[in-house]
Design a protein around this nucleic acid. Structure first.
Lengths: 193, 193
DNA sequence: GTCTATATAGAGATAGAC
DNA sequence: GTCTATCTCTATATAGAC
């Protein structure tokens, strides 16, 4: 595969990534993606044999990006608490997109679960990335394995609930109020150590 | 409309309700519903002109059923705390379905939001029903309006997060652990009154 | 590597017989 | 009120020219 194809492929994945997020996977057609990338539908199939192949490429890309982000957080924050705070503040920073389209991870996993799609396990790895990273951070904070696991899942669940309701009710104050509560909750977890 | 049509219509809504929940709205075709009800696709259109009409009927039915359930809870529980506990325990009682298909309210609202569907506001009324009922219960508990609102939204968000993660990770212990935490959280809210 | 043209399947929706 | 037959549109996917 030459550099030209590589570039076109990348643009397709980029466009599909955005469209799957804003419109949903099933609701996005090849034509939608082709339009966004400005290539013909015929050429499309030179790069991807099926729609599911594009989905897998999108998930792979998101996994890589998420992994990088988690690494960046660890170099930014100096303590586990600061690292976890990066996660919490991601909700705050992305509040506008979350309000409009929900959480990119949660909405994809929910959709693929409902479709009983072959790639749903692959998408769930996005959740698992955050889960295991958070578990690691809570372990560094001095929690035992079971506690760290439970705290990570709890925080993940809280963030998902915030995204779902914020998307339904379009309430900006709600996100901010809940993020603040998560900050307080995190502070409490240090006390209990 | 005669009683026979009334009955067929009811069966269609019932089947559509279940299919929209287990497979998603967009992923469910007229043929799927017709198969489930055992009527021909042609006859189908005697009862409903469009797929969106069926969706509206399903939402209406869910709204009515939810309203009834909330009333039942109020007659079962003797105190606001007991009423709210009915809500929390609904998560526990439905854990098997939630694990498989997510929350019926959350997944529908999320899907319609992504489709930017005309009926998304109608579906959001399902969330609003729970929200306002919970707000009322927290008010009865002695909270002021702003507090009651925030507590209702918080509880609703927690339940949504539990549903989303339980659906993704298929973890039975997780639901039970989080429901217990919600019970404890509710107990704390009484202390603070 | 990109295009146009086309095949094929499934969706929602309608017409008209019974 | 229910059926069969059919229309139309859009989706995924392919063939083959350039």
């Amino acid at each position: 595969m030459g550099p030209k194809a590589q570039q076109a492929r990348e643009r397709i994945v980029e466009a599909a990534d955005a469209l799957f997020y804003t419109q949903g996977f099933e609701n996005t057609s090849f034509a939608d993606i082709a339009d966004a990338v400005q290539i013909s539908r015929g050429n499309f199939y030179y790069h991807f044999k099926t729609k599911d192949d594009i989905l897998d490429a999108v998930i792979d890309k998101r996994l890589a990006k998420t992994g990088d982000m988690l690494q960046t957080w660890e170099t930014q924050g100096n303590t586990p608490v600061e690292n976890i705070r990066c996660f919490i503040h991601m909700i705050y920073d992305n509040q506008s997109n979350i309000q409009r389209y929900g959480c990119p991870v949660g909405t994809l996993c929910t959709e693929l679960a409902k479709l009983n799609h072959a790639s749903k396990q692959e998408a769930n790895k996005l959740f698992a990335l955050f889960r295991h990273w958070l578990t690691g951070q809570f372990t560094l904070l001095g929690k035992d394995e079971a506690q760290a696991e439970a705290l990570a899942m709890h925080l993940l669940a809280r963030s998902q609930g915030i995204a779902t309701l914020s998307n339904a009710f379009q309430d900006k104050a709600f996100i901010q109020q809940e993020v603040k509560q998560l900050d307080d909750w995190l502070a409490e977890q240090i006390q209990h150590t």
